[in-house]
Nucleic acid binder design. Structure first.
Lengths: 218, 218, 218, 218
DNA sequence: AATGAATGAGACTTCATTCAT
DNA sequence: GATGAATGAAGTCTCATTCAT
């Protein structure tokens, strides 16, 4: 075993195919915590357990790291979300509910949340990030959800509302909830309470959307 | 009197008093467009019409600029929002509606939107920003809105929901709508259509909140 | 006088319009001695008496320095050489002789020689240098000399030779003489002896070019 | 015998003996095209068909490569040139003519020209190169040519000129011709035309050197 | 013998901040 | 007060060389 007796650490580690992933993991952690501009390549390297120079064996530039980061995270997310959105053939409210819960629980994981946070934060500097995220995630997931809403209307579950706008009513609260907690440290007394939020939100929303007549809004 | 008798200074002092504000205006524009780290002090100075060195006559450091920026913007916003929230004595739905519209229209103005955007983006680097924004804006405005909702419940307009969570259902869609447009360039076909969004959203929300029984949500 | 009492050196020197020239002087010395790639910007800065960063106030990059260096040196050289070449109306041999001597003596000055040396050495890396030197110097000076030779032929002083090729016979020896001395430290016993070289060379050349019949070469 | 009985090694040892030469070939090509400083060891390795690490099995450093390169090239050149210089017993003009043509044609080959080009270019950085080249090539070849000239004088073919200086008149034009073409892309209209150059040059030179009196130069 | 992943010193360049004028 | 030349720390990226395999 080629291990340094003093430190117990091998000096080199060779042919590690998962080095790039380790670099990305380290970069995500640091970018999330400090932002892209404030993270030094050396920090990423140290956290990934290699030297500054070695990072450049795997990525041609610092910007390439953040792009690879988003690219890596983006595809599986879209896949899973759309699987949910398509899975429900009957009452579309069940599909909406499941999709929303899955989305919310996914985002509670700091690892998952980190990517969209980073994309939003660095969008002005690295527009490719926003474009990629839009193309790979939003342009697939949002229409899928809008279609669920539309089916709800077509099948007589919902009033005839604008599905695209209603989509925003559907997902917006999740975003605010997360942002208040994450950025401003504002949560319900007992913690994040994501389940209660969704419960409350959907009960209002589905009621508000139901066809059984009621006094108009405003 | 064109000369101050005490100091002997000429009346027009080259608007020295406005200088700090001009610096802040310039900084806000640049921070919004490029982010804090990517904005050079020289750029701010040039846009404000003075020299790099002069900026340091008014602010001790670059970070002091962003802090002053948020501090300046933060107070009047809170004032106005709370004025609205308190103004409605009758049907609280009117108050909510008015407050939301005012909030939305305020944020359509790039100048207004810039501050929270900046706060969110730089929160990780300069936690003071988030703290200040929370203290001066959120901790005043959010409870005021929550109180409106609570009054709606107490006065029999709304079902007994959790006002704090419902608050998120109320304002979330506005945020998503703006973010989709601003970061990802995703808008309804005809443009931002903020009015339609709010119309649609409130109609759903108020219906969903109304007391007249309905099939329970899921 | 704003001079540091300890060192006698002012810490800053402001508004020095000749700073760029001082940087170029320093750069020429170092590029000549060590080559472009081996010269660090910091060395140039120190030799020019300013800081690394200040160099970038005057030149946007290291390569811009070498380009400016050649550009600065190139114009006056061409002017003077062509003035000589045009000045002789009578026996063109006098013009050739004077031009050659002027060229040779000019190049004895290390400052003058440095530029073409640098151009030749770095031509492969920075092709712009060679292009600029050709355009500004060679394309003007060489035809002027060739024209002198041609006039020598037309006026009956020289045999009908190819002026362009003979041009090479004319200036070549100066180049070899310099290169042997400069690169390989090979000189006549008494030193550079440029005058003796030219005397010897021109006596052979003019004899070889004269029309008075002689046994053909080879 | 396909296996060495002593060592038990297979007969074909993957041409390990040729490896150093292949490295030198690759290095020469790259140094010529890009200069020493701009050539990466990895490039040399790849072009030589082996790995970066293997280069260091044969050469202790990058600088050792360029030194070996010159050393390898230097000896045979001197041999051949001196063979020519000594071969002509009769009219030394024939010897000079043949030597010059051989020199010129040798240098047309990019491979041959590469070495002196490299030596000149890198002389300032690696003085050993210039010293070695002088010792092995110039100090042998130049005196041999000078001796031919001297014999021309002694035998009554040439006027009594300084053989060392005339040597420069002899070889200089070849150098300028090559340099104009190689560095500045300046050639006669039909191409390099080396034969015409030499023809023209020698006809002038031999005429100029011949004893039959003529009007003095100048 | 051979590989190529890894290292780390050091290059160029940027920019917040200072200070002589 | 105002300027902008000057500084120098610090960042990104390169590459000769080493070494585990």
């Amino acid at each position: 075993m080629s291990v340094n007796k003093e430190t117990g650490q091998p000096k080199f580690r060779r042919r590690a195919d998962d080095r790039p992933d380790e670099v990305l993991d380290a970069a995500m952690e640091l970018f999330t915590a400090q932002g892209f501009a404030n993270t030094k390549v050396e920090q990423i390297a140290r956290l990934a357990g290699l030297s500054k120079g070695a990072v450049y064996l795997y990525f041609p530039s610092k910007q390439a790291i953040i792009e690879a980061l988003v690219r890596r995270a983006v595809t599986p997310v879209a896949e899973r979300a759309m699987a949910h959105a398509r899975a429900f053939a009957g009452d579309p409210r069940l599909g909406i509910s499941a999709t929303l819960r899955q989305l919310a629980h996914g985002l509670v994981d700091a690892k998952m949340l980190a990517i969209p946070k980073m994309v939003v934060r660095e969008a002005a500097q690295v527009p490719e990030l926003a474009q990629m995220y839009r193309r790979e995630v939003l342009d697939r997931v949002l229409p899928a959800i809008a279609m669920l809403i539309q089916r709800g209307i077509d099948d007589g579950y919902f009033r005839p509302v604008d599905a695209d706008l209603t989509l925003r009513s559907l997902i917006g609260p999740i975003l605010v909830h997360l942002m208040l907690a994450d950025v401003f440290d504002i949560t319900p007394p007992e913690g994040l309470a994501f389940d209660r939020l969704i419960e409350n939100h959907l009960s209002i929303l589905f009621d508000g959307l139901s066809v059984s007549g009621k006094a108009g809004a405003r």
